[in-house]
Amino acid sequence: MSTFEALIAAQDRVEPRDEMPGDYRATLVRQIAQHAHSEIIGMQPEGDWITRAPSLRRKAILLAKVQDEAGHGLYLYAAAETLGVDRDDLLEALHTGRQKYSSIFNYPSLTWADVAAIGWLVDGAAIVNQVPLGRCSYGPYARAMVRICKEESFHQRQGFESLLTMSRGTPAQHAMAQDAVDRWWWPSLMMFGPPDAESPHSARSTAWGIKRFSNDTLRQRFVDLAVPQAEALGLTLPDPDLRWDEERGSWDFGTIDFTELREVVSGNGPCNEVRIGRRVAAHEDGAWVREAAAAYAAKQGTRGAA
């Protein structure tokens, strides 16, 4: 048995200096990079509402949240770099579409209530997905996830609390909250990926200790958490097939339209072009700044050596 196999068999952590199969490394780079890109692109739909937040307290909470997302992006790029890749190359892959980010961010944030719904549902789904990654076999990724999940659960509570305030507010606020939940519910369920039967890489990721639970298991866990929370919010979920299954001890839910997910993943979502366009514009507009920083650092190096 190789050291790698022994580590996986013992459920120990694989660390950057350990030998690992090329495919394991490549799978992790792809997954961690996608995760980092999601944090960075995910700043946009909420970030657009910072200047428009309806109270100074909500504005401060949202600013702090978007700042956390940028920070999460940084830890995750750093975790990916332990696998021998470079952040600039990963950003290039994001900008040119070679690497993906979570499709959830290709839906628009149309009203202030969307910020709350994103916190409750999108961050809620992210937590269900990410908590098990805190036990994933690759040490730097697992440690980044533990830290990120703590902050995400704070974001999720804030989203819930903001939505509750709107739900109990004026009729117009309640309607806005309901509309946001109606639009974000199904995309949130799609965040868990395709059904198990159609998830080609799942078995291998599971064998490697990267994935601990199947897509459908995590999706069900999320639905079971969300249904009573929706009730507490006084909001309905847009699924007429939701009903409690006594035997399974879980909520049955309707059929997910994965055709839509595939469309959004392949670039035809409502906001794919806007999100990448904005990201690329920020990067290009900032090129002169990064060049200046590099030139200054080089001069300091020369001066230091002289």
């Binding site: 960075i40 700042q67 940028a70």
Partner: peptide
């Protein structure tokens, strides 16, 4: 207004922090 438009991710963090 700079958030998600800054020249680097570090600068997104810094400007958000100052704004906060």
């Amino acid at each position: 207004e700079w958030i998600a438009r800054a020249p680097s991710i570090e600068e997104d963090v810094a400007l958000a922090n100052i704004a906060l």
